[in-house]
Amino acid sequence: MSKCDLSIRLEDADRVHRPGERVRGELSVEVNAPCRCSALTVSCRWRTHGRGNRDQGMEDPQVLFQGELAPGMSQRYPFEFTVPPGPATYHGKLLNVDWYVMARADIPWAIDPKAEAEFLVEATEVENYDFGTSYAPPEQLYRSAEKGLGCKFAFLGVFLVAGGLILGVGAAAGEVIAVIVGGIFMSISALAILGLFWRGIAQRKLGAPEVRIGASVARPGDMVPVSITIRPRAALKLEGVTAALRCSEVVVSGSGTNKHTHRQVLHQSEAAFDPGGRELPAGEEVVAGGVVEIPPGAPPTFAAPENKLEWVIALRIGIAGWPDWKRDYPVSVRP
């Protein structure tokens, strides 16, 4: 038996709260054995649950009591919190985000008694909506993706040169193992570099398409204008330009060798911006565009270290006899 038992009662426990509203309740403490309580605290925070490892938001605990607790003592402490501006309660397939009032009695040299009670937070329009602890604005994600490509080339280049050196020195010294190791290093890095080139090969024919996403942050029901301007470096046959809107839950479970990433697509829709089927001469500018509709009732973007709900506009330019040009552009959906 613990030194004391805690329980939480919320006023209107089933009520759906909006950011800015007050959550009120009472913490009851029933003492079973004499003890010193360093701090009896309540806090309010979100936490994820589901297929992934749990993430949680920051807490700002309120201290309700400090001092000696005597057996038979029964106390009630009222508390109240302002509902923060997100993230909203979300119940999906792999991912759930819920809000809790959590209470804890810090008792030295004993297991701390705890209690918690859930409450619901509606996704409503607020000025400074909180998307979660790992949220980065979409523009920042575009920049880091471009930077990441350069880093990958540099990293693989170092491996290629190192492999060449090992192979060269090994061959000169007649060391078979060094030649094999150097050869393996070189082959793997050369294949990886070729892979990166293959993904970017469409751009060599197309030039760098100029993409404009009308709004990187949108609300359910919004129409996001998207345009792609192409100025091919060489003549090509355009097979079509499409934009797909995809919403996925992405969660990570376990750690070490047990680590797994699970993905569940919740929404996918595609719009054809250009039907294609025509020849484009080199240097001719083509502008393809349209709107991508964020579906009404779309759940808001959420980003925590191990749990994400992400919205992406996936653009594809099809070129006859050539790999497609593909890029994903994250968008943030907010209530």
Binding site: H49, H91, D98, L120, E122
Partner: peptide, 14 residues
């Protein structure tokens, strides 16, 4: 419609 998670199963989470 928001409801407490897994309340229909008398559970708090999966």
């Amino acid at each position: 419609i928001l409801a407490l998670p897994f309340a229909h199963l008398n559970l708090r989470w999966n």
